[in-house]
Design a protein around this nucleic acid. Structure first.
Lengths: 240, 240
DNA sequence: AGTAATATTTAGTCATGACTAATGTTTTGG
DNA sequence: CCAAAACATTAGTCATGACTAAATATTACT
């Protein structure tokens, strides 16, 4: 039996069709999600908190990302990073994977909407282009995931909605829920129980029972719900 | 902003529901697949070739697997390894994942049968118990994957068919294809084109055009195909 | 049985991507 | 405007899981 193996070149080969390392993807996605207006810097600490790692680890990685060819981020020492063109492209691929997977889990595998995030978070790194294409086709190329977030197109284009939070509404004002944060399952279960989901119209009632709480009327019904400030911040709305 | 993060304990946490490391899974699966009769040893070199890594790396890992609590393998220095009870349990979980995913890709996402293996190979490590349960339900708890391999039950039970290869048939003998190897896509495309798949009855023709080639009649038709020795070895049959 | 060929193991290295502790830079507030 | 606090970076460590080269054990053959 031959002892020399054909090609143990594990340095060169990339496994499967998923092209990058899991860690790099997570950084790029974090930077994308934390960076609000297109061109401002995200700090190491923000990233560290988002990823539950130490700031030192972040600095270390940011330098590597900036040193890639082509660079994935623009890194201003002591001031933060933003995504380069290629970094943004790659981040959007991951976001597309994530949101397609969430939609797929919900529509095809009947996952409740509070459970899709966790599973998608893991799978998004490992699906091939083929898989992505197949589920997109199966779902009829959906534009939004179960939480109302837009799914980037294959070319990375994304309808840039300006995100206005429910907490910014004036009393009496009415708006339609465009999306809700997918991060906290418990919150999602609460919202589902109240009938609050993307597409539903909410009206902020006049009276605020106490500071930091929001009472909203739901749809055309007389039903209403009481929302904490953090809950209100997790709901994005489109006025009119 | 607090600089102390809640829990950067990355040593303790396991990510998602997938409990083990990718590498360990691959070793256990390799040992499972290479170990023919339940209780014989698999050599480092066999494993190395199967995984396309060097034998030294294998030895290194086998020692770690044997040192786990509970041990995942029984390691006889210089002679090989076999799976322990827990090692076999875990290997069967991965095999179950793999075969369920293959079936799912084929049935639900319309993958051609020669492409399912590669994708499943990557995904098998990262799906949760929930995902496994959902696709099994969606598929009606299938017993076989697209290549005819039995899918282990959740408790790890597996109908131990005795594998007889087509190459072991006598001329004139007839048998039903039970499974075909899923490793080589090109081979699978060839077999599909010839109409050879699990469930099809084959009859080994009397005359062998030259040593190491097999001519078989396919089903009840008059069609026949010529198979190389390695092809014949990749087809498992059940004689009547 | 003894030696060559084959297979396996040891020892030491490398890359990745975390970590801590110590140090340096910015920002803030008196 | 300068010191303390907050934040970021450096330097060095660790675990994982590959690798190569060298040493050792097993097997096979004369």
């Amino acid at each position: 039996m031959a002892n020399h193996l054909s090609k143990p070149s594990h340095t060169t080969e990339r496994k499967g069709s998923a092209s990058g390392s899991e860690a790099i993807d997570d950084y790029l996605k974090a930077i994308f999600q934390l960076g609000g207006p297109p061109e401002d810097l995200v700090s190491s600490t923000e990233i560290a908190i988002h990823l539950s790692i130490t700031p030192a680890s972040v600095t270390n990685m940011l330098q590597k990302l900036a040193a890639q060819e082509p660079p994935l981020v623009i890194y201003k020492k002591h001031h933060g990073v933003k995504l380069s063109r290629s970094g943004k492209k790659r981040a959007l691929e991951i976001v597309r994977h994530h949101r397609l997977i969430e939609t797929f889990l919900h529509q095809v595998l009947d996952y409740p909407w509070d459970e899709v995030h966790q599973e998608a978070e893991r799978l998004e790194h490992f699906i091939s282009e083929r898989f992505e294409e197949r589920i997109a086709a199966k779902l009829g190329h959906p534009e939004f995931d179960p939480h109302g977030h837009a799914i980037p197109a294959m070319d990375g284009s994304l309808p840039h909605q300006q995100p206005r939070s429910l907490s910014q509404l004036r009393p009496g004002q009415s708006a339609k829920v465009s999306s809700v944060s997918d991060k906290d399952p418990e919150m999602l279960r609460y919202l589902a129980a109240q009938g609050i989901r993307p597409g539903v119209r909410l009206t902020l009632s006049e009276q605020l029972p106490f500071k930091g709480a929001y009472q909203v009327r739901i749809g055309t019904s007389t039903k209403s719900a009481l929302l904490s400030h953090s809950l209100a911040e997790a709901i994005s709305v489109a006025v009119k």
